[in-house]
């Protein structure tokens, strides 16, 4: 187990390197630079700035500087927010994104799994129909359409919830962003759980469990639950990635001070180090989560061996 995790972490290094090269290349290919203000600045000042940030050196050398910093945990200073390092900015913003993402994921599982199971157990009933059609709707409406509608209805007209803002993560401020972020995942998890539950209920070992005279409660919770959840667990990896990306959109719509905002602002301002930092952070997070999910999977399915 420990060996497996070390192996996976080491295996992630080349991936990370490739991602860094790609992001570095892309942002430098994009026209403009971090100090292209609307007001032109004196040539000496610009030369000075470029020298401080090594922008006058060849790209490869710049990348070398950057890489050696990253290895030491230093993502460099932000070009835009000059009084902060990128590490500090990520440190401030990540808790916001994390709280948002984890809440959305928990809602997706807490609502999606039971809804899917109930739909499967009461197959073809009215309840099943309601779950299935609601989830279909939830899956096809894009977040950037749904979120503004929610803001209009619950924020502007009904005035039940704040229109935007974080307010230190107060519950009323969280409600709409979390719901908007989680909805497609609630829907997807519900459909997936329904499908896998139906399949498990048709399986031979459930027939065996019933032939043994086990009460329904045991048949469902001991024999059916775990196997029915396996596809959901596999889906968690991609779901985490999706929620991270989705939160970039949500954070902008609701004006939340999360990583997504820095990601977008950084790109617009050509804040090289900030974009690089946030991208690397996202990538590392995703790779890590995939390892966590793979390890978690083996606890559910003894047939899967880590190697």
């Amino acid at each position: 187990m420990f060996g497996y995790i070390v192996k996976r972490l080491l295996g992630a290094i080349p991936t990370m390197l490739l991602i860094m090269i790609a992001v570095f290349a892309l942002i430098h290919i994009a026209p403009g630079g971090p100090f292209d203000n609307k007001r032109p600045m004196p040539a000496e000042v610009r030369a000075n700035l470029n020298a401080t940030y090594h922008l006058d050196e060849p790209l490869l050398v710049q990348f070398g500087y950057y890489l050696s910093g990253v290895v030491q945990g230093d993502f460099g200073p932000s070009y835009k927010f000059k009084e902060f390092t990128v590490t500090e900015l990520i440190g401030q913003a990540f808790p916001v994104s994390l709280k948002l993402g984890i809440s959305a994921l928990i809602i997706a599982l807490l609502v999606g799994v039971p809804a899917g199971m109930v739909a499967a157990l009461k197959r073809d009933s009215l309840l099943d129909l309601v779950v299935m059609s609601t989830s279909m709707t939830g899956m096809v409406i894009p977040t950037f359409v749904l979120a503004p509608i929610m803001v209009m209805v619950f924020g502007v007209h009904l005035k039940w919830l704040p229109v935007a803002g974080w307010n230190h993560g107060a519950l009323p401020n969280m409600v709409m962003p979390v719901i908007a972020l989680s909805l497609p995942y609630v829907a997807y998890v519900a459909r997936m759980t329904r499908g896998s539950t139906l399949e498990v209920l048709r399986s031979n070992y459930i027939r065996t469990a019933q032939a043994k005279g086990l009460p329904m409660r045991l048949v469902l919770f001991r024999h059916a639950l775990k196997p029915a959840l396996l596809p959901v667990v596999s889906f968690l990896g991609p779901a985490i990635a999706g929620i991270v990306v989705g939160s970039v959109v949500i954070e902008r719509i609701f004006g939340l001070p999360g990583l997504g905002r820095y990601f977008v602002d950084g790109a617009i301002n050509r804040d090289y180090t900030l974009v690089m930092g946030v991208s690397i952070f996202y990538a590392a997070l995703l790779l890590l989560m995939n390892i966590v999910v793979d390890v978690a999977y083996t606890f559910l399915d003894p047939r899967v061996k880590l190697k």
Partner: peptide, 27 residues
Amino acid sequence: VNRLQAIRGNQVAMIFQDTMTSLAPHL
């Protein structure tokens, strides 16, 4: 059903052909 459950596996038992799929893989 609850009366049947008390009988199944107790007074009458049934075993099946495909042993790989007839036992719960995760228990």
